[in-house]
Amino acid sequence: MEELLYFFSTTQPRRPAVIRQVLLNKRTVSNLFWGLRYGILDWLATYPQLQREQFDAVIKTMLVKGWLIEEKQGLRLSLAGLNQSQAFEKKHYRITKPFLFSRLKTPLWHEVLQLLVQVVSETSYQNKQYYVVNSSMQARVIIKQWYQKYYCKNLGQQLGNQLLEFLKQMNSSDADLFMQLFSGHKVIAKTAEQLAYNSTYTGADIENLGRDLGSQLIDFLAKGTSIFKSLAQALLKQNLLAQSTLETYKLYQAGIPLARIGKMRNLKAGTVSEHLLEAAIFIPEFDFKRLLTPQDYVLFNKIFQGEIDNWRYEKIQQADPQSSFTKFRLYQIEQSKVELSR
């Protein structure tokens, strides 16, 4: 788990709990905000199996080794830690498109992809008797429905072509490893551990490679025009927001006042605010101006300068006791986005 070093900075002290929760996709506004500040929101949901004990133990070891340094606001990467992180990166596989992970329905996408390759492969040899790869009922139903709709003579040719076209953009030894993770007609998948015996990668690296290329493949199919498009689209979430947040945001977009949204959805005012803060973090075109008045901007501008991490709500409370925490956080989010876009 030395890759955890990637998520620390030599300049910005960071709280390990935030990093862990981002990797796990635990979405509280505070986690998401600090994830935004740390610039690691792309990594949401990349390690859904992360165990707390294991994570804590790794961080502890890193502190002992001096790769991380404890400071008041969190942990900072030392020079030794930076060297270690760079050395680690040279030897190991690093996920290239982490932002795709939170868009995928997990673990469904993996099962469907495995089933798709197997079913099309067996069909290519007109074989109907085989042991189906382990998969949930849901995955089997999805594949069955898709198959009934799209079955055609050259199914194998079509999937083969899509895979070739997708993989030719990749590093070819990565592509070789990736394809060995699938079972089909008279072809049995290798486990990540097995592939690691003859590779410079570890089993964990190959698992990451499989997830990374797998999610990119689904993205590729979903954006393409092949007969696999609708299947791939069914594996992607329509929206990055949680369902309840999305509903609140839609009402907000329709121009309905916050108090009424709360009544309509039977939510506390605090919950409505949290939903809007989450939307403010994820939605690129979020309209901050509806919630922050020109006077707010003047006041915030006067009080808050410099490092956004260090701004404190108490300061605005002293200047204007009416101003809410939500407004303060919104302004912080907006300014963070401005900073990131520079």
């Binding site: 290519s124 194998g156 895979l163 993989l167 070789d176 394809m179 060995q180 007609h185």
Partner: peptide, 17 residues
């Protein structure tokens, strides 16, 4: 001997190409 594991060859074998 383990088979050669070139991705193109795996794809050809999987889909009878």
């Amino acid at each position: 001997e383990p088979a050669k594991n070139n991705y193109r060859r795996i794809i050809e074998k999987l889909f009878n190409l």
